[in-house]
């Protein structure tokens, strides 16, 4: 076990030493999405914007809730959910996509994960434009609670790290994993209070929320944007998941690190 942790730590160490590379790589990947399209990653933002606009008007009518309030909730909810979901779904293919590098030189595998997270964070930053628009239109002034975004996003990224690492390993071994995860995340989108307010659920299915780790991750990233502090239990969930998940996935990584190149 201690050998596994040492292997994982050495890999992390090498990744941090090569931060120049993955920071640059993340930028390049985002810039590349602008190439050969007029809007680049903003297409994604535009798509999200259209979705928010539609949901904001139609679903607030369905749920009979105040449209302005719904807009204020749905916008950060969708943006943060998109961040979490894309970290997880796109995270699966990280090692597979790195084949030419991994088979050419000895390379820290966790650097591929860092590049992936950094890229997701940059794309998330694009989406914040939507939030600014909503704030401006509704005349919302952000309060100091907004600062909680920093620990919130950090915890999302730490959890995103271990999830991506574990899923990348699994996908490399069995390529089906990516399909399973993509379909799972789509289902999770409807099982988690993303579009609908949690109060509408009622007590019978309350476990869907209380024991839904994705929901707690969503809350710690989203609530600060709405101007309220995320509940304590969500912090505990996110922190606990980070601690357990990080340990497990680093142990797994350390155990299989020397086999990864064989799985291409």
């Amino acid at each position: 076990m201690s050998t596994w942790l040492r292997v994982a730590a050495a890999d992390l160490d090498a990744s941090i030493a090569r931060r120049d590379l993955w920071i640059h790589q993340g930028f390049i990947d985002v810039i590349r999405r602008y190439r050969r399209t007029a809007l680049g990653p903003l297409w994604h933002t535009l798509h999200l914007g259209a979705l928010i606009l539609l949901l904001g008007f139609v679903w607030s009518a369905i749920f009979r809730i105040d449209t302005a309030a719904y807009f204020q909730t749905i916008t950060p909810t969708l943006i943060v959910w998109t961040l979490i979901a894309s970290i997880i779904v796109e995270g699966c293919g990280t090692f597979v996509a790195a084949q030419s590098t991994a088979l050419s030189i000895r390379f820290p595998y966790t650097a591929f994960i860092f590049a992936h997270l950094w890229r997701m964070l940059l794309i998330f930053a694009h989406h914040l434009v939507l939030l600014v628009i909503v704030y401006l239109v509704l005349g919302v002034t952000p309060s100091l609670t907004l600062l909680l975004v920093i620990p919130g996003l950090s915890l999302i990224l730490i959890n995103g790290f271990w999830i991506s690492l574990l899923l990348s390993i699994l996908t490399l071994k069995a390529r089906d994993v990516q399909q399973i995860v993509a379909s799972g995340m789509q289902i999770a989108l409807f099982a988690t209070p993303v579009f609908w307010p949690r109060d509408l659920l009622g007590p019978r299915f309350a476990f869907l929320i209380d024991y839904n780790p994705l929901y707690h991750l969503l809350l710690i990233g989203r609530d600060p944007f709405i101007g309220r502090a995320p509940p304590i239990e969500s912090w505990l969930w996110a922190g606990g998941m980070a601690a357990v998940g990080l340990t497990v996935s680093l142990l797994v990584f350390g155990a299989v690190r020397r086999r990864l190149a064989y799985w291409y």
């Binding site: 120049d20 590379l21 390049i28 590349r32 030419s100 590098t101 030189i105 390379f107």
Partner: peptide
Amino acid sequence: PGLNVDSTGRENIITCGLH
């Protein structure tokens, strides 16, 4: 390693060199 076909030669010099 690190070569990307959509990037220019000059950009690839940087990314591949980093790799």
